[in-house]
Structures are given as C-alpha cells and as structure tokens.
Amino acid sequence: MNKQINQKAWLFVLPVFILVAFNALIPLMTVVNYSVQETFGDNVFFWSGLLWFQEVLTSERFQNALIRQLIFTFSILAIEIPLGVAIALTMPRKGPWVPVCLVLMALPLLIPWNVVGAMWNIFALPDIGLLGYTLNALGFDYNFTSQPGDAWFTLILMDVWHWTSLVVLLAYAGLVSIPDAFYQAAKIDGAGSWAIFRHIQLPKMKRVLTIAVLLRFMDSFMIYTEVSVLTGGGPGNSTTLLSIDLVKIALGQFDLGPAAAMSLIYFLIILLLSWVFYTVMMRNEDQ
C-alpha cells in the first residue's frame, strides 16, 4: 500500500477543534469530573461514582425546583406562542408602518437581561412601583416580595413582556414569506379568515414556529438573570427555578459534586425535551 495519507487537512480542522475544546468540551468535562468525585477542599478528590446523581435525583429540593421550572416554562410557552402569532397577524405586511412596528417589537429584545429584572423589580414594588402601586390602589392586595402568587404573576408577566417579541418577529417573518397569490386563491375559493389562518398561514409558519418554540423553551428553561434580580428565588423558595437552585448549591453552599451532577441532569433534560419538541412538531414534515 503506497497510498500517501495527507495529514495537512488537520491544520484546517485544528482552529475549530481548539475553539470547541475551550468553549464546550473542556468546561463540560470539568463538570463531569466534579460530578463523580467528592472533595473536602485542598484539591483532594475521592471517587464517588454515581452517588451525587442519586442524591440529586432523589432530593425533594431538586424535584420541587424541576416542577417549578416546568410550570414556568410551559406557562410562558402557552402564553407567548399564541400571543406572538396573534400580534404578528395584526401587524401590517406592507407600507410605512412596517419598520415602525418592527422596531417597536424589537425594543424589549435589546434590553440587557439584568436591566429587565431591575426594571420590573422597581415597576412592581407595591409602595413606589407604577404596577404595584396601581394594583393596590385598585384594591388588589398585591406584593410580589411577600406573596408567592404575586411573585409568579410578576415573573410570568415580565417574561411575556420581554420575549413575546421574539415569537412575533419569527411568526411575522413566516407570514410575509407567503406570496399574495395564496391569499387571493383562498379569497377566490371563498375561504374565511379562520380557514386562511388554519390552512394557509399556520402550515406556512410551521417551521418558524418550531424554531420559536425551541428557542423559547431552551431560553426559559435556563432563565437565571431576570428571576435572580426580580425575586432572587423568593419569597421563600417559591420562585426558585432550576438555575437559581443550581447557583445556590454551587456557589452558596459550595457543594461542587452535587452541583456538577445537577448541571448534567439539567443539561440532559433540556436536550431531551428539545428533541421531543422538534420531533413532535416536525412529525408530518418528512413523510
């Protein structure tokens, strides 16, 4: 065998390799490393096998955080996706108002996450915040810093305010890509606006909506900054979502092993659910 193997190609792959190694592989493997070991400080580690995984999965604290996380994510998906589509449908498709609407829509997306949290924290304060004060003045007993229900209400409202725009923009992009001829053809057929939505707009928006659901799912499942600034996980543990809990364990209690195991479980849940979403939504596409 005289075939010469050209090794130069490695040079072209190497930069990507290094980049991926530093931004994904090495940090991930460090976490894996922590998750199977026990340490008492001084950089001394002992093998602990799957102990931390067992501990995390069976702990009530993790299960509660996971349930809160699922409730939060599915609530905001249930609100933001239909609301985003509805807003996109009412936006003009041509004319001078298009850029105005697009900029207005994009505005919340441009605000840094911790600023959003701070804004809503002040906005919702019962004594001086516009929202909190108004609600109390209207006779509601509203205080998001002491009542779990109010905290959840504020949290979801903040997320809807911050992120519905993303769904709107994606849905809008799907809508404007539908040629006029489709609407005309439907009009000629005598189809009503519900039929047009159900049989033309929705199927044509399917791909962008899949992307919207995936993005919103992943982002909301990983949400940290805004919640941390708004409620810090409280009152009590009522808004302690997975990421908040994780930070408490890792940085608050410095339990590196359980925190690492939890990170991996957290990561696998997101991966699994994203796959489920994608498969379900694209089910009919490849037949």
Binding site: P179, A181, F182, Q184, A185, K187, I188, D189, G190, H199, I200, P203, K204, N284
Partner: peptide, 20 residues
C-alpha cells in the same frame, strides 16, 4: 366581491393548501 363571482384562477407559483 370575487367570492361571489364564480371565478377561478391559476397562478405562476403552485398555489395549493399545504396541509391538504
């Protein structure tokens, strides 16, 4: 209105209901 006129039209693009 066009829906009351008994007209049909075929376009350059292939216009069909995608999920039917």
């Amino acid at each position: 209105r066009v829906q009351d006129r008994n007209v049909s039209m075929v376009y350059q693009q292939f216009i069909n209901y995608p999920n039917f």
